[in-house]
Design a protein around this nucleic acid. Sequence first.
DNA 1: CGGTACGCCTGAAGGC
DNA 2: TGCCTTCAGGCGTACC
Length: 291
Amino acid sequence: MPELPEVECVRRSLAALEGASIVSVEVARPEFVSAETRPDRLRPMIGAIVDRIDRHGKELALIERGPRRLRIRLGMTGRLLLRPLSEAKGRPWIPHEHVRWRVETDDGRAWILSSVDPRRFGDLKVFTSESAFDADRARLGPDALSIDARTLRRRLATTRRAIKATLLDQSVLAGVGNIYADEALFAARVHPRWPADAIDRGGVVRLGIALRRLLRRAIEDGGSTIRDYRNGRGESGAAQLWHQVYGRAGSPCRRCRSELLRDCVAQRTTVWCPHCQQVIHTDVERRHQSR
DNA sequence: CGGTACGCCTGAAGGC
DNA sequence: TGCCTTCAGGCGTACC
């Protein structure tokens, strides 16, 4: 479900939790979750006072005023819902068959943060030391929202993989998923199969500008709601209204009217404009096309 | 080691 | 109507 803009919108919608103290962390069906999300692994978060909610790439983290951190990943269909405890009275679990876990905070700032996640690809993980949390974070590359051209160029220069696969690799750049990868490549006029290390300087600059611009604009518009994305208040986004290529295979390019193509790149459906994003003449691409 | 294929889950949508 | 197939915003793991 969520990529960087959607996760950032969820983060902002959880600001009311700042200053609240965690009273309980419960899991609806422990047999449904991974080892790290089991109740005994989450219990150490009890007593933490929330300093802030942090985001890096597509990951959220509840940061306490101390060393403990609760990492929250939403997966494909994960949705968070924050509501006052008073609303939840008598209904400890929100009435939804796919509710997975909930965090309750104290009487001073009494909130219930719940997760609904039909496909169960999301998870929770507690870190009891800052160093362990930082080590986990080190899996991820720099956050895509603030990537600069220089860093992007250095990162892309390390691999011959297709640029689309490289953008989706969270260890290279954190936060880009299938929607914004296709949108950024279209905006930068770069073909999705172009080897990452073979993009010229102008292309990398365009890509950096496109990423920052698209992600920021998507955040302003509340994220992309394709099917079920909502922020912590249950509100949907509007960024899907201006998508240029995602979900538009077979339709005319909004720039040149060519028919948008669709193929599988990096095991993900990829849509691009064969006219605006050609720039492919390498042997690598000829081999792809002859298959 | 770098890169690719697959599996994990459920639900919506489309074909017949 | 209903059954079947395909596909979906992510990511860890096995394997080449």
